[in-house]
Design a protein around this nucleic acid. Structure first.
Length: 472
RNA sequence: GCCCCAUUCGUCCAGCGGCCUAGGACGCCGGCCUUUCACGCCGGUAACACGGGUUCGAAUCCCGUAUGGGGUGCCA
């Protein structure tokens, strides 16, 4: 058997959405698993719309996801003459004919014949000639069936009587994707057509064209279950925010994204969900793809991404998060940023976020002095009854002589103050909370001690004194 | 309307006639750890759409019904 050739054939719509990305991924997985070839083909019947920008909107997200293609991108628009030749061939062989009927005229004829909807071969024998506004229709067989032996869905039969004489060339002379599809898949030696279930109904039409053109052996089909939203509707770029680029911008890692996408409609036999793509490639098979539509669950994506973030080394994490930490949106002035601080604290940040754009929130106080104290945290930690004022006084005094070189020592000093007070006052005194509020402005965050060494003695003491002054 | 497809925990995935008192993951709930928040660990919650068959035996096979979805374009 010759090695498989698969293709991902998106229309240039301006961006790639997760449903398309999933189709691309499954094609890629199949190609890599079988040692086949992954072809990228842009289905642009409207050639003038295909600007470089639109092409980039497809290729960049694919590359980001790690889906490298072996051939292409080919452009349908550049193969127009071949498509037109195929239309002409069908015309010559009697498989297609011209039709000049308008939508209104077709409806009128349907009404007259007592038929509802569709097109019923009205111009088959009218001997219409070509001209402006005239379309070419395929003469679909009146009886018999086309069988799709779909790898995912099994045997699907479509009765030919339900297939109307569909248009293969528009009134403006341009070919419709159905004919382009048949021609391109044939010319490019495509062996497996792997795509969304929404295209299942177009398969018999292309197969009919395929036979009429005398192309011989057809590709095998595999229609993937649709990706749906919370309402169980097909993911739509209109309703749902599903641009792959948007996920990238929020700080999802490409490997995590690809891993998550691979789990929609398919699962590894050993039930280990989060794993390197190389293993997924190894385990993947079209035969084990699900039939039922899958909901794209951002919460699970978040969990997978969090796991991937935790798996990064400190240096890798710092580099990966840098775009968010150095952007204009970062909550600190550009010159206050210090990547060394981030790298030192990376493990603490990594275990607290599920997307890279959440990193800044944990780091703000290290790069800029808090402008105000969180009210709730203040009232919880800074109560005199719990000796917060004395804690701050003694922590300030004890820390004043320290050189802030050792996180462990700072911890001992601060906690020691609390313990001593606990003994003296015969009531549990927690010294961490007031110090945290004084330093960070809030009550929750990464561990203090190491961060304090990074902040430095002068800044720490200044913040502690400022907070102490609030007591009046 | 017509054609096509699907139906296992809230969600994703496992199960492809007996191993199922249905397994894993996310989420949720509880506990442990912890002088913050997390992480981690332990435990719990929760599903075979319904009705008929076939079979010694069905989540698994067949047929209906219901529900959901896709298509029905001179979009792809």
């Amino acid at each position: 058997m010759t090695s498989p050739r698969v293709r991902f054939a998106p229309a240039p719509t301006g961006f790639l959405h997760v449903g398309s990305a999933r189709s691309a991924l499954f094609n890629w997985l199949y190609a890599r698993n079988t040692g086949g070839t992954f072809v990228l083909r842009v289905e642009d019947t409207n050639a003038e719309k295909t600007t470089q920008e639109f092409v980039d909107a497809i290729t960049e997200p694919l590359a980001w996801l790690g889906l490298d293609w072996d051939e292409g991108p080919y452009f349908q628009s550049e193969r127009l003459e071949l498509h037109m030749a195929a239309v002409q061939q069908l015309l010559n062989t009697g498989h297609a004919y011209y039709c000049d009927l308008s939508q209104e005229e077709i409806e009128a004829k349907n009404d007259e014949a007592g038929l509802k909807g569709g097109y019923h071969g009205w111009s088959r024998d009218r001997d219409v000639g070509d001209g402006p506004g005239v379309v070419v229709r395929f003469r679909a067989p009146d009886d018999g069936v086309t069988v799709i032996d779909d790898i995912v869905r099994g045997r699907v039969e479509i009765a030919h009587e339900t297939i109307e004489d569909f248009v293969i060339r528009r009134g403006d002379g341009s070919p419709v994707f159905l004919i382009a599809n048949a021609v391109d898949d044939h010319d490019m030696g495509i062996t497996h057509v792997i795509r969304g279930e929404d295209l299942l109904n177009t398969a018999p039409k292309v197969m009919l064209l395929w036979d009429a053109l005398g192309y011989g052996e057809k590709p095998v089909y595999a229609h993937l279950p649709l990706l749906v939203n919370e309402q169980r509707k097909k993911l739509s770029k209109r309703r749902d925010s599903v641009a792959l680029a948007a996920f990238r911008d929020e700080g999802y890692l490409p490997d995590a994204m690809a891993n998550a996408l691979a789990l929609l409609g398919w699962g590894p036999p050993d039930e280990v969900e989060i794993r390197p793509m190389a293993e997924i490639v190894e385990l993947f098979s079209l035969e084990t793809v699900n039939k039922a539509a899958a909901m794209f669950d951002v919460q699970k994506l978040g969990h997978i991404n969090a796991e991937y973030i935790k798996g990064l080394s400190a240096a890798e994490f710092t580099a990966a998060a840098e775009p968010w930490l150095t952007s204009d949106e970062a909550p600190w002035p550009a010159d206050a940023y210090d990547s060394a601080v981030v790298e030192a604290l990376a493990p603490e940040i990594q275990q607290r976020i599920s997307k890279l754009d959440e990193a800044a929130g944990w780091l703000t106080w290290l790069f800029v002095r808090p402008t105000e104290f969180d009210e709730k945290s203040w009232s919880k930690a800074m109560v005199k009854g719990r000796a917060a004022d004395r804690v701050l006084d003694e922590v300030i005094a004890a820390l004043d002589g320290d050189d802030f070189s050792d996180a462990g020592r700072i911890e001992q000093i601060v906690l020691g103050v609390g313990d001593a007070l606990t003994e003296a006052l015969d009531a549990r005194v927690m010294s961490q909370a007031p110090v945290r509020v004084a330093l960070t402005g809030g009550g929750a965050g990464i561990p203090l001690w190491q961060a304090m060494t990074l902040l430095g003695r002068d800044e720490c003491l200044a913040r502690l004194r400022a907070a102490r002054a609030q007591f009046g």
